[in-house]
Simulated assay, not measured.
Amino acid sequence: MTQIPRSALILGLAGVIPFVWGALTVLSPPLADWGQRSLGARFVGPYIQLFYGAVILSFMSGVLWGFATKETGARAATGYALSTLPALWAFFFTGGGPTSAGTSLIMGFLGLLLLDWQFWRWGLAPAWWMQLRVLLTALLVACLAVGVLT
């Protein structure tokens, strides 16, 4: 296995912070109260997780699109089409309240992991890609589960 570049690992883990913060504010009402007073209601509990999760799914569509540019012909077209799925998932399935939206995001990120694997299998993603994506997906799904199950 190829080691994950330090900068990619640090930035990837930093991207999990809003999910962790959201889970912590679900589990700790005093922290949620402080966060709401200091940052606003949108930046605590499941709300930060849901908004940020939709943004990240859309961002990951762009990442996959970039991988698809390494191909030509039918495989490129397939890659471009597949790359739109995470953003479309976020757009169509993250409404309806925090529990259903959180569940949809969990499913979206697990589906994204399958897409990551396919692009990696095609040789379009870096050799270390799946190590990073499995780690980040496990962390953010665990955080989202706090919001869904609590």
Rank of each mutant, 00 (worst) to 15 (best):
S61Q: 07
S61T: 02
S83N: 05
F92W: 15
L64M: 05
L24T: 05
D116W: 04
W89I: 03
A87K: 04
G53C: 00
Q36A: 13
A32Q: 14
F67L: 12
L132Y: 03
L114N: 13
V55A: 02
V44M: 06
F92L: 13
M1Y: 12
W89Q: 04
S7D: 11
L115N: 00
A74T: 12
Q118P: 10
S83E: 00
T94H: 08
P46V: 14
G35F: 00
L31Q: 06
F119A: 11
G111D: 05
F43Y: 14
D33I: 15
R6C: 09
Y80I: 11
A76W: 13
L144E: 01
Y80N: 10
Y47P: 12
A127V: 07
W89T: 01
Q3A: 15
G111F: 08
G111C: 06
G62F: 09
A87W: 03
G108K: 00
V141L: 05
V55S: 02
M1E: 13
W122Y: 04
W65E: 04
L85W: 12
L39I: 09
D33Q: 15
W65K: 10
G102L: 08
L139Q: 04
V55P: 04
G97L: 00
T84C: 11
W122K: 00
P98E: 15
L39K: 12
A127S: 14
F93I: 08
G73F: 01
L114F: 11
L88H: 10
T2Y: 10
Q36N: 12
V63A: 13
G79R: 02
L135V: 03
T2S: 15
V148F: 01
